[in-house]
């Protein structure tokens, strides 16, 4: 981690762990401000095969069946550049990327 980045923990759903080869939880160097968008930028930089799987390729919008939780709060519907809670920004708690539960 460099002086101007923060170590942010992220948990991935099963299918994205399979696709990326990553562990269930990864720690990323993220440039503040710490938001879902900046965390996903860092995630996609390390795992480019995940581009398009959480956010749409062109619009950059969240895919419909993906949700985000931070510090036990549902942050799915906040603007992606909303700053995340301090406990996520300082690595105390992970940003959780969750696949919506449904059949299939």
């Amino acid at each position: 981690m460099s002086a101007d980045t923060a170590a942010v923990r992220v948990t991935l759903p099963h299918h994205l762990r399979m696709l990326s080869g990553a562990d269930a939880e990864v720690t990323l160097d993220v440039t503040p401000p710490i938001s879902v968008a900046s965390v996903l930028d860092a995630l996609e930089a390390r795992y480019p095969m995940l581009r398009g799987t959480v956010r749409e390729h062109v619009s950059g919008e969240r895919r419909a069946k993906v949700r985000f939780f931070a510090a036990r709060a549902d942050v799915t519907h906040l603007p992606l550049d909303t700053e995340l809670p301090e406990t996520v920004a300082n690595g105390e708690e992970p940003l959780m990327i969750i696949a919506a539960i449904s059949g299939g």
Partner: peptide
């Protein structure tokens, strides 16, 4: 339908894969 489209490729007849 959750995570979209992925293209996989093998150059060894399906033993190993990559995007």
């Amino acid at each position: 339908s959750w995570f979209g489209q992925v293209i996989q490729r093998s150059d060894d007849g399906g033993k190993t894969w990559f995007t």
